[in-house]
Design a protein around this nucleic acid. Structure first.
Lengths: 191, 191
DNA sequence: GTCTATAATAGGATAGAC
DNA sequence: GTCTATCCTATTATAGAC
């Protein structure tokens, strides 16, 4: 069953492209860095992504969307206690951003000169993200409107905390931002 | 007195370089875009900035530091009522970020592959920024420690609000972030 | 599916005329 | 102080062998 192997290998390649885009942004990422990161020659990359860099960015965002759907949104939706759902989501974000040391792919590509398909994916990932956090906030007792504001402000603070870390090396604001979700559970009404 | 004219003209050029770096980031900004934005040929730009793009970024950050020092920090330090200082600073940030429609130069360059001198300037601008906001927060009645946290979290939220706008076009989170400073004045003890 | 070789273009930078 | 012309390198992309 070579098809399964191919899919696994492709996911591995995309994971390495993800790191390059995340660390260098769209314009800063070059075919040479992709080649080095994946161990593949430029021509091999074009074999997998005929439309080049743009298609690579779309593939990486597709994988990011799958993460947001399958890990974050589905956990927020799960029939588990609020505290357990929040704890799982906090751990997932902490791992994704390597304790605040890593950039956010979504935040970087959102500000870069990506194509329309990639931009649509950015919007879809953002919607999944905001809806998941708003659901947690709503379950903690907030009104729908307050929960939506909370989700937007929490997203912003997390994005900004990563920028702050890039500027001064301090990961504590990132940790405080994650902790805002934990605090959410403490305000929750009994379920 | 041609020297004064030169300084004025140079400030105009730097202002246009600022817009290019802000909108495209460090790697996304090219000599061609600088040339178009300033109306100068590449060689003329090298006349003003012999070390090229790197020196241009440093000049732009120097101007940003002057803004943070002369507008934000000096207003926070002024012997005016807290509400008046906050109002002036909010208006300055609202104008700088064009109501939330523009990117932040500091936030973008902090995540890009800039040189050590530019990176040092990023750190200095950030310190001025955080100290100014912490001073406002402290004057509103917070402890020094709380005020410092407030400044970091406010910076993060503002940076993230600009990313959010880039992703979905909504400037309301930016407006809410500015409003956090206005709310600060309402908590203030009588002066 | 991967490679070497190569093209075509854009980007950064310099020389020298005016 | 600005321009044209030029150079070198990096970057994107393709052709064709294996």
């Amino acid at each position: 069953m070579p098809a399964a192997l191919d899919a696994k290998e492709k996911a591995r390649i995309i994971e390495q492209l993800f790191v390059v885009f995340r660390d260098h942004g769209y314009e800063g990422a070059s075919l040479a860095t992709f080649s080095q990161a994946t161990g593949l020659g430029k021509s091999s990359l074009y074999h997998h992504f005929p439309r080049g860099k743009e298609q690579m960015a779309e593939a990486v965002l597709e994988q990011g969307k799958a993460f947001m759907q399958n890990v974050i949104a589905s956990t927020a939706d799960a029939p588990d206690p609020l505290e357990a759902r929040i704890s799982k989501i906090v751990r997932a974000f902490d791992k994704l951003y390597e304790g605040g040391q890593a950039y956010c792919l979504l935040g970087r590509l959102a500000c870069d000169g990506i194509g329309p398909d990639a931009r649509r994916l950015v919007g879809e990932i953002l919607t999944l993200w905001l809806n998941a956090i708003a659901e947690l906030a709503h379950d903690s007792g907030m009104s729908e409107a307050d929960a939506h504001h909370f989700a937007e402000d929490w997203f912003a603070r997390l994005q900004g905390a990563l920028i702050l870390r890039a500027a001064n090396g301090d990961t504590k604001p990132f940790k405080r931002t994650l902790n805002m979700l934990v605090e959410l559970a403490k305000d929750a009404p009994p379920q």
